[in-house]
Design a protein around this nucleic acid. Sequence first.
RNA 1: GCCCAGAUGGCGGAAUUGGUAGACGCGCUGGACUCAAAAUCCAGUGGUAGCAAUACUGUGCAGGUUCGAUUCCUGUUCUGGGCACCA
Length: 1096
Amino acid sequence: MEYKFRDIEKKWQQWWKEKNIYKVENASSKPKCYVLDMFPYPSGAGLHVGHPLGYIASDIFARFKRLKGFNVLHPMGYDAFGLPAEQYAIEHGIHPAVSTENNINIFRKQLDNIGFCFDWSREVRTCDPKYYKWTQWIFLQIFDSWFNRKIQKAQRISQLMKIFGETGNLQHEFPNEKFELPSGKTQFTAEEWKSFDERLKQEILMQYRLAYLAYTDVNWCEALGTVLANDEVINGLSYRGGFPVVKKKMRQWSLRITEYADRLLKGLEEIDFSESMKDIQTNWIGKSSGAEILFRIQAPTQSSPEGKESQRTEPRYRTAQTSLYHFTKILAEEKRKNPTHEEMLMWQRLKNNQTGFHIRRQHIIGAYMVDFACLDKLATIEIDGAYHNEPEIRKYDEARTKFLEENGFTELRYSNKMVRADIEKVISDIISKLSSLPSVPKKSESSKVFPSGGDLEGASFRVYTTRPDTIFGVDFMVLAPEHELVKQITAPPHSEEIEKYLLYVQGRSEVERMAEVKKITGCFTGAYAIHPFNKKRIPVWVSEYVLVGYGTGAIMGVPCGDERDHKFAKHFNIPITNIIGDYYNGEEANPTKDAVLQNSDFLDGMVMRDAIEVAIDKMEELKVGERKVNYKMRDAGWSRQRYWGEPFPVIFRDDIPYAMDEKDLPLELPPLNDFRSAGTGEGPLANAKDWVQISEHEKRDTNTMPTHAGAAWYFLRYMDPHNDKIFAEKKNLDYWGQVDVYIGGSEHAVAHLLYSRLWVKILNDLGYVDFDEPFRKLINQGKITGDSRFVYRIRNKNMFVSFGLKDQYETDPLHVDVNIVDGLELEIDAFRNWKPDFADAEFILENGKYICGSAIEKMSKSYFNVINPDTVVEKYGADTFRMYEMFLGPLEASKPWDIKGIEGVHRFLKKFWRLYVGEEKGLIVTNEPATNEELKILHQAIKKIQEDTERFSFNTCVSAFMIATNVLTDLKCHTRSILEPLLILLAPYAPHIAEELYQQLRSSKVLPLGEDLGGASSVVDATYPQFEEKYVKESSKTYPVAINGKTRTELTIALDATQQQVEELVLANDVVKKWMEGKPPKKVIYVKNRMVNVVV
RNA sequence: GCCCAGAUGGCGGAAUUGGUAGACGCGCUGGACUCAAAAUCCAGUGGUAGCAAUACUGUGCAGGUUCGAUUCCUGUUCUGGGCACCA
């Protein structure tokens, strides 16, 4: 009987399905094992041979564990929300739900073809309302939580409110250091808390919530009217269309993951992730410790910005008419303390540069006071209340408008009603109007307003440094271009240059800004900072290599100790102070901590390492700085301006977000046909007006959650996938617990893996799950790359030249479908039929053949190098495919797909088959007793395969199967007691052939299955064979014998030989004697079971 | 740029703690079976020299530690990955 793999595989796949072989129960006396693949996104392109690599590995492991007596949870489902489906909908008008469903069906068919043991009764899809109901529910739990730093745990908001009612926030400072109350304070007492109105209370609580709203940057493309993902932006231009992209602030949800930075770091110590994965996460979190130092700004003088110090204490800012200054100033201060409700609302949104513009409130211009002013853009913003409607006031208003116009101001007006109804619209209108205004006319004499020098009374900024010991080596300061002080402190002679520079930086990505170290850019602001200790004047620069989001957005430049600072100083000819003596050679910076400090005032003579603490202590003593732990990680942006994601389960009542009632979940996506964004920066949901606007005072969020949301907890849902009372029953969560083995690509290193770790930690804090880390062990499978083929077209001709001759012509390489290339030789007829353009193509051949070029690249449709697993399975069978994918190399390594080697694996399975089944006779297994040699082969295989499977070294397992099969074939072994255990060993790898042979053995009357292996109804539930040492034990070993480390001969020596016996035996050997050339042996090294070495 | 991983025959790879480098498979060469082919089987296969025994050489490159290094250390070159909205 032939090995008819196609029939066999179809038959058993069907049988497994009918018998529900892969259904897993939540209750079992067996130990549990949870084997999980990373959630796949069902893309329209379907699976290529690279995708199943991890699935095959996890499938083998799951089957292996089941044979070993575990209750194994091995589920599969779909991360079905996401951008590609939405983009497809925009381009083809097909609803994401429809294309996603189609894609899932294709995906499923491809998976089924490979014979995986998934329990499909547990399938989940993130886009299913029954699923995302619980995604929303968990989001609400996060929204209803805050992080108590004292106990390093999340607690309910009600707990926080109770604390506020008792002690205010004196025990729990605002997590966001920049936040301040309308009074300008950052602390409040219990009494004050009680006196706050609802709006302020909610605003304060928002500062603590683990899911919170704030203004954060997006990539905004005005021309496309949409927000773009980072990888849709290239060199500051949109990927589609090449339109300019700028950073824009939008009010969005964030998760306060920064509060968990320390716990996420600590958790890494107890989980089994690869070192590189831990490194990536550690870097991402980016914990460092050092000091935050306060630098005061010295205001530049108008007349001589670079000149000598001015002692002026009066503010330089002179928009106010001098005679009225004091009067209006008092008035302004008065008004600031008693803002109207709407003014306060606005101020919460406008302050602290949230809009990207520096806006002041109750500002005096001339003799007039405006509600808000953006002086960089010469714009004022008025909130028009009833107050302004009185005739007298109106007259005043008109005079003011006239005055402002004459002085080049643009006035923006909004009614109180508008502010109350839709503040978002007002804010986004302000942003867009301000964006369209030119920045302050630089040399306008008519204007009484100068863009700089103002408000500098007490102006200061903070820098974060890990090297406070180098404080006396500071030669310059650098602010991030986005730093809020930049425009304020820039002196007029420099403002044009700065403006230009800021424009340049706006179009640069962070990676570009960090990466290009050779290209040094920057711009002097004209301002000086004052050294906190020696009061030296330090020039303040702006440069793109400082990022606003990291630390304080400002650094102190220490050229002798930091290479980047050094290059900067050299490039701009800034004099360099040497504080490390000989350690600095004048050519390059030296980041040492071992130097003895010089030129460093009170730190002189100290080793840098020790000076760090001394410097910080002194700073704290003088109140110019403080000890500080810093994290590179920022809070996670959780809003997407997209349709195809989970809607936020919140309702805005008068712009204050409130959690939806749990019983109203899920909040389903409204039906929509047009998925283009609203053009205002809002997502497509803004077009569903009825859905968004619930009532006059109630609105929904038009954003949706990122795909990370559904994927942050799906592994919990598999434990109880159909529960409609809770996301998963506690007893199931307790039984299955952590994922024991998680297999997937390293591309998820920071996003998915950090967010799911975060969600589990929060659920753990809130008492829903008992574990703190979701994944006990993580394995990153490598990628299978494609092997592309190229043809070379002669420019402007429909003529193609073979690879070896292409250099004689001017050619362009074109990707050619790998399916019409045999090795490197192009099938010319197939090529002509491939595309109409090539029907008349002519060829220049070498040796009568057209030879293609080749390259290893990502497997991608656009490279025509995609191999569909279906075609491989059709030709060789699923078992061959599974084993070949494993045989290609180590699971974690990336490797190119090469179909050639698959023949060898296929041949192995045929050879394996022939151990059991004769060509004509059918089953040829006998009950002969096994020989010692056969038993040795079997038990060597059991040991090797068991150990290697446990450590995910599947490629060496395949080799081991081949070796065993080769030797047993040579021995003509057909013994049941050898072949039956061997079959079970193979079952995880090649389940179909194993099931077929197992069932043949079972149904054979003369050959009842061995009781010790379970005699189960399916090979899936057989018992894994037990390794027995006695069969592989040997009494002697053939040792390599080396003289001076070079192997010269072999000797068989008894394993229990003593050192002395070995020495005698070895020295008596002729070959050894020859190589010793009569010299006496210095030493004989004998390592038992390894080797012998004679040193002469 | 920063961080990480990797480099072994013509190819994919093996060598688990420093102990016979190249297991296993592909490819290639020769042979058996066959009218022929496919399939299957047998033998050989890192390089150089040699009929052979054997010798020398060999794990990206340059050094070092060691009786002994693919493995450990230092430096270096190249390749791949990550660096915050693809998933």
